[in-house]
Nucleic acid binder design. Structure first.
Lengths: 232, 232
DNA sequence: GTTGACACTGACGCAGGGTCAGGGTCGCAC
DNA sequence: GTGCGACCCTGACCCTGCGTCAGTGTCAAC
């Protein structure tokens, strides 16, 4: 006759696990001795090893319960099911690993390489870190809400950065971030921006919803920009 | 300003998840409006997307907390850690899948192929299903507690099944399973078994502990066998 | 003023146990 | 006979990442 500790050691599980299996009804509760200790026979060792074998194979305890008494056909069916579930899990895990592997430092964490290159270009052009953070956040929003428009956005943005006039206007906007909303220079800047925008075709690649979110993200930061928008 | 439902929809998570992130301190609690509803800015969308990106990559929430504010070096280190953890999980999963794939119907579930073949041989020799179940349980115990002795056991057992004298004695034991322990034929059977055993070398491949467990498993089943052992 | 969709908090549930807390028992040594 | 360490008992809370009630309040529209 074995105590619970001996049984557990023989099957290679913990005492706690054995009690857990009792509670789940997987393993029959054995007789108790005079002091209330559980006393096990060799049969329990066999039963426990069968449970452990299935559990080690990744079968959920609820399934093990049904499987232990199952007929071969039923059993084969269940094994196939479980394998499907495991295969799915494995695919998930691999997706996760690929994503983790793709994670680099800094900005590149949440946006694609092409997007990150845009930020790098802007850094090289001496835009402020504040401006670049806003840009990054906007790109994050685009990646999340409008992934299909990424190529268009990347192309448009790169073209814009090739355009000295855009760069000039953008630098002016950058400088205006911290201005007081009553700053007298704002109306002139608004006119400047409007003049530049007038020469550009409208982009339709992104939904109005996404645009409004991007806009509000930008405007949260700068009271001066909010004023600018009113001046348009 | 967004409600929790709008925020959740924009980031592609559930409302419940957002509240959970608040509770975990991952996402800052926003201002409430007059009725106590949470009101979010676009910043929250960005923050939530960052959280979701990491969570989708399989980073535990507790880790995300530390990562969101981490410096690039720290971050790279953590990413490496997480990838190691994921790789380990993936290996585990694959082990599970291999084991599951190896699971066939019936007896073969818990014992190796070679072991299962022994049971098949015994079935072909018309041993009772009761006897075969006991044998199976004994083999399960051996696989679990003495895996290193499996080849020796398989060899010995196959040799024994090749020996007509052993098969005769074993059939006699099989028939005796259900006998009353006071059955008058038992002493003769005991002598028969003893005579056969005397001609055999003792196997030392299996520890005394395992042997005693196997023996008790066998004896649990049959009072007549218990009597036989006393008669030795 | 009623309806349906949303919001709020709080609590329980899941898998598979780990880890106390607060006892009782066993076996051996002195 | 008693002291000690190693077991055993039950019960209850802890972990992850939310899902899913329950019971109540609020918003917007008809």
């Amino acid at each position: 006759m074995l105590t619970i500790g001996q049984l557990a050691a023989r099957a290679g599980v913990t005492v706690r696990a054995v009690r857990h299996y009792h509670q789940r009804g997987l393993l029959a509760e054995p007789e108790r001795d005079a002091s209330g200790y559980r006393r096990y026979t060799a049969q329990a060792v066999v039963d426990l090893i069968r449970i452990k074998t299935l559990a080690d194979a990744g079968v959920p305890l609820a399934r093990i319960d049904q499987l232990l008494g199952a007929e071969p056909e039923e059993f084969a069916q269940a094994v196939a099911d479980i394998d499907r579930a495991l295969a799915k899990k494995a695919r998930e895990l691999n997706r996760h690993r690929r994503r983790i592997a793709a994670l680099a430092a800094g900005d590149r964490l949440f946006i694609s390489d092409e997007m990150a290159q845009i930020l790098d270009r802007q850094r090289a052009m001496n835009f402020s870190e504040q401006m670049i953070r806003i840009e990054r956040d906007v790109l994050i929003i685009i990646e999340a809400l409008s992934p299909e428009s990424i190529p268009a956005v990347v192309a448009t943005k790169n073209a814009a950065l090739d355009d000295p006039e855009f760069v000039r206007v953008y630098h002016a906007l950058d400088e205006a971030i911290d201005w007081d909303p009553r700053d007298p220079r704002l109306p002139a800047l608004a006119a400047d921006v409007a003049a530049w925008a007038a020469g550009r075709p409208q982009e339709d690649a992104i939904s109005a919803d996404t645009v409004s979110l991007m806009l509000s993200r930008s405007l949260e930061f700068s009271p001066a920009w909010r004023r600018l928008l009113q001046l348009q």
